[in-house]
Design a protein around this nucleic acid. Structure first.
Lengths: 196, 196
DNA sequence: ATGCAAATTATACACTGTAAATATACAGTG
DNA sequence: CACTGTATATTTACAGTGTATAATTTGCAT
């Protein structure tokens, strides 16, 4: 019933993660402090340590949520796209870039160097692998290409990754245009790979 | 003559920047502390403040050096490449990615969110603009394309940026292969844009 | 009810960035 | 030469951070 500030929070871990996501969204990774998150949850500075080994573990948990959201949005975009691998790849690229534009600080955290040792967090590694595995499957569905499939996947991924990052870092123009560029760029790559 | 620990360092600013680059290279941005840099230069913790307004200013100065080095290496690669815009673009892409692989932490700093307000540092903005201006000029030399020149430039830049970042973050395989991918990817993009 | 394990807090320390006041050395004036 | 202003460097101080250690509170199984 949680009458008033019970000693045991109940679901502190979830509350901490929610606070962390909020603080990250405005303020960036620098604003994501363990003490701040604890404060936001109305709990002592040391409480988070019973749910996260250290700040890096909290960051990893936040990043894991980010990868799961990214994957979910990508799947939703694929479901809404016309049939066929070509349309799927274009829609997927657009969704990927759209996620970066909508969650700039989260995406930076997901790919940032604060997660130097991804291998130390199995959940994170698993969540991070989902989108790229999906991409590889779609590429395979395209049929024969002028480049090998692994390279095609890397090219498309690198393009989406780089385009989104450049956009949120202010190197590109209008954000609305960026999504159009994402689609056009993916289409151009597909055309470039096509056997003629 | 600098007999022994003179009160005035002589060229502290340069020494601080050198220390900063070294500490950044091993240890990443987190290891780049004002106090640490001062310590490395054998100077008090407050001394850097007479050369850099705050930590952000030091970071901006380091990033400026990074952009200048990147531009220099790119120019060197262009000079060594066969004539013609196609060869230049492929060589430039390779050099760009090679720079990222050789200076991962520096490149992360250059593009990272620690520099949220690039406009506050005119030198930095100027240095950062050089490579992309060069790229635009090379694209223009290609002649008519199936996509407009601005988009072509963004695609190539995004590809190189994304490929390098994915590589240093451990998402791609062998580093040696990455350079080959950079060249092949640039070539594929050029082919995809070509009017047929 | 009783005892144990989990959750939370209190206290403490080393480290960071940086503000304020102070000391030192140099460069130009008379 | 003395003198003074300015740039350079230091000392001291404070708030905020991550986190180690130990004490405390609570809920649950027995």
């Amino acid at each position: 019933m949680a009458t008033s500030a019970p000693y045991h929070h109940g679901d502190l871990r979830t509350a901490l993660l929610a606070a962390a996501l909020a603080m990250l969204a405005d303020g960036g990774a620098a604003a994501l402090t363990l003490r701040g998150v604890a404060r936001a949850a109305g709990v002592s500075a040391m409480a988070p340590y019973h749910h996260f080994a250290d700040r890096a573990a909290l960051v990893a948990a936040v990043a894991t949520i980010g990868f799961e959201r990214l994957y979910a949005e990508k799947l939703a975009a694929l479901a809404a796209a016309p049939a066929g691998p070509r349309a799927a790849l274009i829609a997927g690229t657009r969704a990927y870039v759209a996620f970066i534009l909508a969650n700039p600080e989260l995406y930076r955290l997901m790919k940032g160097s604060e997660l130097a040792d991804r291998r130390a967090y199995p959940d994170l590694a698993a969540a991070a692998a989902l989108p790229s595995r999906k991409l590889a499957a779609l590429i395979a569905g395209l049929g024969p290409l002028r480049v090998d499939a692994a390279m095609a996947a890397e090219m498309l991924w690198a393009f989406a990754h780089g385009l989104g990052l450049l956009a949120i870092d202010g190197y590109l123009g209008n954000h609305a245009d960026v999504l159009a560029r994402a689609e056009a760029g993916a289409a151009a790559l597909l055309d470039g790979w096509a056997v003629r």
